[in-house]
Design a protein around this nucleic acid. Structure first.
Lengths: 117, 117
DNA sequence: TTGACATATGAACACTTGTTCATATATTCA
DNA sequence: TGAATATATGAACAAGTGTTCATATGTCAA
Protein backbone atom coordinates (compact mmCIF):
# COMPACT_ATOMS: atom_id res chain seq x y z
CA UNK A 1 0.00 0.00 0.00
CA UNK A 2 1.15 3.52 -0.66
CA UNK A 3 0.08 6.90 0.48
CA UNK A 4 1.41 8.81 -2.48
CA UNK A 5 0.81 12.13 -0.78
CA UNK A 6 2.74 14.01 -3.40
CA UNK A 7 1.86 17.20 -5.24
CA UNK A 8 -0.66 15.57 -7.55
CA UNK A 9 -4.38 16.07 -7.29
CA UNK A 10 -4.77 12.98 -5.17
CA UNK A 11 -7.78 10.75 -5.08
CA UNK A 12 -9.98 13.02 -7.13
CA UNK A 13 -7.78 12.81 -10.20
CA UNK A 14 -7.66 9.04 -9.94
CA UNK A 15 -11.39 8.75 -9.38
CA UNK A 16 -12.04 11.01 -12.33
CA UNK A 17 -9.91 8.95 -14.71
CA UNK A 18 -11.38 5.75 -13.48
CA UNK A 19 -14.63 6.79 -15.15
CA UNK A 20 -13.05 6.92 -18.59
CA UNK A 21 -11.14 3.65 -18.72
CA UNK A 22 -11.17 1.60 -21.92
CA UNK A 23 -13.61 -1.31 -21.83
CA UNK A 24 -11.75 -4.52 -20.94
CA UNK A 25 -12.69 -6.12 -24.25
CA UNK A 26 -11.15 -3.23 -26.17
CA UNK A 27 -7.99 -3.48 -24.07
CA UNK A 28 -7.63 -7.15 -24.87
CA UNK A 29 -8.30 -6.74 -28.59
CA UNK A 30 -5.98 -3.77 -28.96
CA UNK A 31 -3.19 -5.53 -27.09
CA UNK A 32 -3.73 -8.65 -29.17
CA UNK A 33 -3.55 -6.61 -32.38
CA UNK A 34 -0.28 -4.98 -31.38
CA UNK A 35 1.05 -8.29 -30.14
CA UNK A 36 0.43 -9.88 -33.51
CA UNK A 37 2.21 -6.96 -35.16
CA UNK A 38 5.08 -7.35 -32.70
CA UNK A 39 7.09 -10.15 -34.25
CA UNK A 40 9.98 -9.72 -36.69
CA UNK A 41 8.77 -12.48 -39.00
CA UNK A 42 5.30 -10.99 -39.24
CA UNK A 43 6.74 -7.51 -39.73
CA UNK A 44 8.76 -8.89 -42.65
CA UNK A 45 5.65 -10.49 -44.07
CA UNK A 46 3.74 -7.22 -43.84
CA UNK A 47 6.71 -5.42 -45.34
CA UNK A 48 6.74 -7.57 -48.48
CA UNK A 49 2.95 -7.24 -48.69
CA UNK A 50 3.11 -3.46 -48.48
CA UNK A 51 3.89 -3.32 -52.20
CA UNK A 52 0.90 -5.48 -53.06
CA UNK A 53 -0.51 -8.98 -52.70
CA UNK A 54 1.68 -12.07 -52.86
CA UNK A 55 1.05 -15.81 -52.72
CA UNK A 56 2.25 -17.81 -49.73
CA UNK A 57 5.01 -19.38 -51.75
CA UNK A 58 6.54 -16.05 -52.72
CA UNK A 59 6.18 -14.65 -49.21
CA UNK A 60 8.09 -17.65 -47.92
CA UNK A 61 10.89 -17.12 -50.39
CA UNK A 62 11.13 -13.37 -49.74
CA UNK A 63 11.05 -13.71 -45.97
CA UNK A 64 13.31 -16.74 -46.03
CA UNK A 65 11.31 -19.16 -43.88
CA UNK A 66 9.31 -22.31 -44.64
CA UNK A 67 5.85 -22.11 -46.17
CA UNK A 68 4.52 -23.84 -43.09
CA UNK A 69 5.86 -21.13 -40.86
CA UNK A 70 4.43 -18.49 -43.18
CA UNK A 71 1.05 -20.17 -43.09
CA UNK A 72 1.02 -20.21 -39.31
CA UNK A 73 1.91 -16.54 -39.18
CA UNK A 74 -0.63 -15.60 -41.82
CA UNK A 75 -3.25 -17.36 -39.77
CA UNK A 76 -2.49 -15.08 -36.84
CA UNK A 77 -2.46 -11.99 -39.03
CA UNK A 78 -5.76 -13.09 -40.58
CA UNK A 79 -7.22 -13.64 -37.13
CA UNK A 80 -6.74 -9.98 -36.26
CA UNK A 81 -7.93 -8.93 -39.72
CA UNK A 82 -4.56 -7.50 -40.57
CA UNK A 83 -4.31 -9.38 -43.85
CA UNK A 84 -6.88 -10.86 -46.21
CA UNK A 85 -6.62 -13.96 -48.43
CA UNK A 86 -7.72 -14.24 -52.04
CA UNK A 87 -7.69 -17.62 -53.66
CA UNK A 88 -6.79 -17.94 -57.31
CA UNK A 89 -6.41 -21.51 -58.42
CA UNK A 90 -3.88 -23.31 -56.29
CA UNK A 91 -2.37 -20.16 -54.88
CA UNK A 92 -3.74 -18.00 -52.10
CA UNK A 93 -2.76 -14.37 -52.35
CA UNK A 94 -2.50 -12.29 -49.22
CA UNK A 95 -2.71 -8.52 -48.90
CA UNK A 96 -3.27 -5.91 -46.22
CA UNK A 97 -6.84 -6.11 -45.04
CA UNK A 98 -7.48 -2.43 -45.64
CA UNK A 99 -5.82 0.93 -46.01
CA UNK A 100 -6.42 1.55 -42.33
CA UNK A 101 -4.06 -1.23 -41.30
CA UNK A 102 -1.52 -0.20 -43.86
CA UNK A 103 -1.29 3.32 -42.47
CA UNK A 104 -1.04 1.95 -38.94
CA UNK A 105 1.88 -0.20 -40.04
CA UNK A 106 3.59 2.63 -41.86
CA UNK A 107 3.03 5.08 -39.04
CA UNK A 108 4.85 2.66 -36.77
CA UNK A 109 7.59 2.39 -39.35
CA UNK A 110 7.90 6.15 -39.50
CA UNK A 111 8.26 6.23 -35.72
CA UNK A 112 11.19 3.84 -35.65
CA UNK A 113 12.99 5.18 -38.71
CA UNK A 114 12.84 8.89 -38.01
CA UNK A 115 14.03 8.04 -34.51
CA UNK A 116 17.42 9.59 -35.17
CA UNK A 117 16.64 12.41 -32.81
CA UNK B 1 11.02 -26.69 -52.24
CA UNK B 2 8.20 -25.37 -54.36
CA UNK B 3 7.79 -24.49 -57.94
CA UNK B 4 4.90 -22.12 -57.45
CA UNK B 5 4.30 -21.88 -61.18
CA UNK B 6 0.98 -20.16 -60.69
CA UNK B 7 -0.42 -17.16 -62.49
CA UNK B 8 1.79 -14.66 -60.67
CA UNK B 9 4.70 -12.87 -62.31
CA UNK B 10 7.15 -15.49 -61.10
CA UNK B 11 10.76 -14.88 -60.22
CA UNK B 12 10.82 -11.35 -61.56
CA UNK B 13 8.20 -10.10 -59.12
CA UNK B 14 10.04 -11.69 -56.23
CA UNK B 15 13.40 -10.40 -57.38
CA UNK B 16 11.95 -6.92 -57.78
CA UNK B 17 10.53 -6.84 -54.28
CA UNK B 18 13.68 -8.20 -52.80
CA UNK B 19 15.33 -4.90 -53.68
CA UNK B 20 12.97 -2.91 -51.50
CA UNK B 21 12.98 -4.89 -48.28
CA UNK B 22 13.07 -3.07 -44.95
CA UNK B 23 16.53 -2.96 -43.41
CA UNK B 24 16.85 -5.72 -40.78
CA UNK B 25 17.45 -3.20 -38.02
CA UNK B 26 14.20 -1.41 -38.85
CA UNK B 27 12.36 -4.73 -38.86
CA UNK B 28 13.64 -5.57 -35.40
CA UNK B 29 12.91 -2.15 -33.95
CA UNK B 30 9.44 -1.94 -35.43
CA UNK B 31 8.57 -5.44 -34.23
CA UNK B 32 9.94 -4.62 -30.79
CA UNK B 33 7.86 -1.44 -30.65
CA UNK B 34 4.66 -3.25 -31.54
CA UNK B 35 5.55 -6.08 -29.17
CA UNK B 36 5.88 -3.64 -26.30
CA UNK B 37 2.51 -2.18 -27.23
CA UNK B 38 1.05 -5.68 -27.39
CA UNK B 39 0.33 -6.44 -23.76
CA UNK B 40 -2.96 -5.77 -21.94
CA UNK B 41 -1.26 -4.31 -18.88
CA UNK B 42 0.76 -1.88 -20.96
CA UNK B 43 -2.27 -0.96 -23.03
CA UNK B 44 -4.09 -0.13 -19.81
CA UNK B 45 -1.16 1.97 -18.67
CA UNK B 46 -1.14 3.88 -21.94
CA UNK B 47 -4.89 4.25 -21.71
CA UNK B 48 -4.78 5.97 -18.33
CA UNK B 49 -1.89 8.12 -19.59
CA UNK B 50 -3.84 9.21 -22.65
CA UNK B 51 -5.63 11.83 -20.56
CA UNK B 52 -2.33 13.24 -19.25
CA UNK B 53 0.64 12.40 -17.09
CA UNK B 54 0.34 10.36 -13.90
CA UNK B 55 2.75 9.25 -11.19
CA UNK B 56 3.63 5.56 -10.84
CA UNK B 57 1.55 5.28 -7.69
CA UNK B 58 -1.63 6.47 -9.39
CA UNK B 59 -1.01 4.34 -12.46
CA UNK B 60 -0.72 1.31 -10.21
CA UNK B 61 -4.00 2.09 -8.50
CA UNK B 62 -5.87 2.77 -11.75
CA UNK B 63 -4.55 -0.30 -13.52
CA UNK B 64 -4.91 -2.44 -10.42
CA UNK B 65 -1.45 -3.99 -10.23
CA UNK B 66 1.54 -3.51 -7.92
CA UNK B 67 3.83 -0.52 -8.28
CA UNK B 68 6.68 -2.92 -8.92
CA UNK B 69 4.86 -4.43 -11.88
CA UNK B 70 4.06 -0.94 -13.15
CA UNK B 71 7.70 0.06 -12.86
CA UNK B 72 8.81 -2.96 -14.83
CA UNK B 73 6.31 -2.21 -17.58
CA UNK B 74 7.18 1.49 -17.65
CA UNK B 75 10.78 0.52 -18.12
CA UNK B 76 9.87 -1.40 -21.25
CA UNK B 77 7.70 1.43 -22.54
CA UNK B 78 10.50 3.89 -21.80
CA UNK B 79 12.97 1.66 -23.62
CA UNK B 80 11.03 2.04 -26.85
CA UNK B 81 10.47 5.75 -26.19
CA UNK B 82 6.76 5.25 -25.90
CA UNK B 83 6.52 7.09 -22.59
CA UNK B 84 8.67 9.71 -20.90
CA UNK B 85 9.36 10.26 -17.19
CA UNK B 86 9.36 13.58 -15.38
CA UNK B 87 10.55 13.67 -11.83
CA UNK B 88 8.91 16.02 -9.37
CA UNK B 89 10.08 15.45 -5.83
CA UNK B 90 9.48 11.90 -4.77
CA UNK B 91 7.10 11.12 -7.60
CA UNK B 92 7.95 10.33 -11.18
CA UNK B 93 5.27 11.33 -13.64
CA UNK B 94 4.93 9.45 -16.89
CA UNK B 95 3.33 10.62 -20.11
CA UNK B 96 3.27 9.67 -23.78
CA UNK B 97 6.64 10.43 -25.28
CA UNK B 98 5.16 12.53 -28.07
CA UNK B 99 2.02 13.18 -30.08
CA UNK B 100 3.29 10.75 -32.68
CA UNK B 101 3.02 7.80 -30.33
CA UNK B 102 -0.31 8.94 -29.04
CA UNK B 103 -1.83 8.97 -32.51
CA UNK B 104 -0.35 5.55 -33.24
CA UNK B 105 -1.99 4.23 -30.09
CA UNK B 106 -5.31 5.84 -30.88
CA UNK B 107 -5.25 4.72 -34.48
CA UNK B 108 -4.89 1.17 -33.24
CA UNK B 109 -7.74 1.78 -30.86
CA UNK B 110 -9.91 3.07 -33.69
CA UNK B 111 -9.15 -0.09 -35.65
CA UNK B 112 -10.33 -2.43 -32.94
CA UNK B 113 -13.36 -0.43 -31.85
CA UNK B 114 -14.86 0.40 -35.22
CA UNK B 115 -14.40 -3.26 -36.07
CA UNK B 116 -18.13 -3.85 -35.97
CA UNK B 117 -18.14 -4.29 -39.70
C1' DT C 1 -9.67 -40.95 -60.63
C1' DT C 2 -4.71 -40.42 -59.91
C1' DG C 3 -0.60 -37.72 -59.10
C1' DA C 4 1.48 -33.36 -58.19
C1' DC C 5 1.45 -28.94 -56.25
C1' DA C 6 0.03 -25.10 -52.84
C1' DT C 7 -1.54 -24.14 -48.54
C1' DA C 8 -3.28 -25.23 -43.84
C1' DT C 9 -3.15 -27.36 -39.41
C1' DG C 10 -1.83 -30.27 -35.11
C1' DA C 11 1.60 -31.67 -31.86
C1' DA C 12 5.79 -30.84 -29.52
C1' DC C 13 9.85 -28.63 -28.40
C1' DA C 14 13.15 -24.80 -26.92
C1' DC C 15 12.77 -20.16 -25.87
C1' DT C 16 10.69 -15.96 -24.17
C1' DT C 17 7.60 -13.22 -21.27
C1' DG C 18 5.11 -10.91 -17.09
C1' DT C 19 4.46 -11.21 -12.57
C1' DT C 20 5.90 -11.65 -7.56
C1' DC C 21 9.12 -11.19 -3.83
C1' DA C 22 13.07 -9.19 -1.99
C1' DT C 23 16.12 -5.54 -2.17
C1' DA C 24 18.27 -1.22 -3.85
C1' DT C 25 18.16 3.67 -5.03
C1' DA C 26 16.35 8.35 -4.63
C1' DT C 27 13.93 12.12 -2.43
C1' DT C 28 11.77 14.64 1.42
C1' DC C 29 11.17 15.94 6.07
C1' DA C 30 12.21 16.02 10.91
C1' DT D 1 21.87 12.26 9.87
C1' DG D 2 18.01 8.98 9.97
C1' DA D 3 13.24 7.51 9.07
C1' DA D 4 9.65 7.29 5.72
C1' DT D 5 7.96 7.40 1.11
C1' DA D 6 8.26 6.58 -4.07
C1' DT D 7 10.25 4.27 -7.59
C1' DA D 8 13.53 0.97 -9.70
C1' DT D 9 15.75 -3.41 -10.32
C1' DG D 10 17.33 -8.51 -9.91
C1' DA D 11 16.12 -13.28 -9.54
C1' DA D 12 12.97 -16.88 -10.40
C1' DC D 13 9.00 -19.26 -11.70
C1' DA D 14 4.57 -20.39 -14.34
C1' DA D 15 2.55 -19.41 -18.59
C1' DG D 16 2.81 -18.34 -23.33
C1' DT D 17 5.26 -18.07 -28.07
C1' DG D 18 7.32 -19.41 -32.83
C1' DT D 19 9.34 -22.80 -35.22
C1' DT D 20 9.78 -27.63 -37.14
C1' DC D 21 7.99 -32.01 -38.59
C1' DA D 22 4.31 -34.72 -40.03
C1' DT D 23 -0.02 -34.78 -41.99
C1' DA D 24 -4.40 -33.00 -43.90
C1' DT D 25 -7.04 -30.29 -47.20
C1' DG D 26 -7.86 -28.23 -51.58
C1' DT D 27 -6.90 -27.43 -56.54
C1' DC D 28 -5.42 -28.49 -61.16
C1' DA D 29 -3.84 -31.38 -65.08
C1' DA D 30 -3.73 -35.65 -67.31
Amino acid sequence: MDVCAGPHTGGKLVDNRREHLMPPAAVETLAETFRILGDPTRVRILDVLSAGELCVCDIAELVGISESAVSHQLRLLRGMRLVRPRRSGRQVYYSFDDQHIMSLFQQGLRHVTEDAR
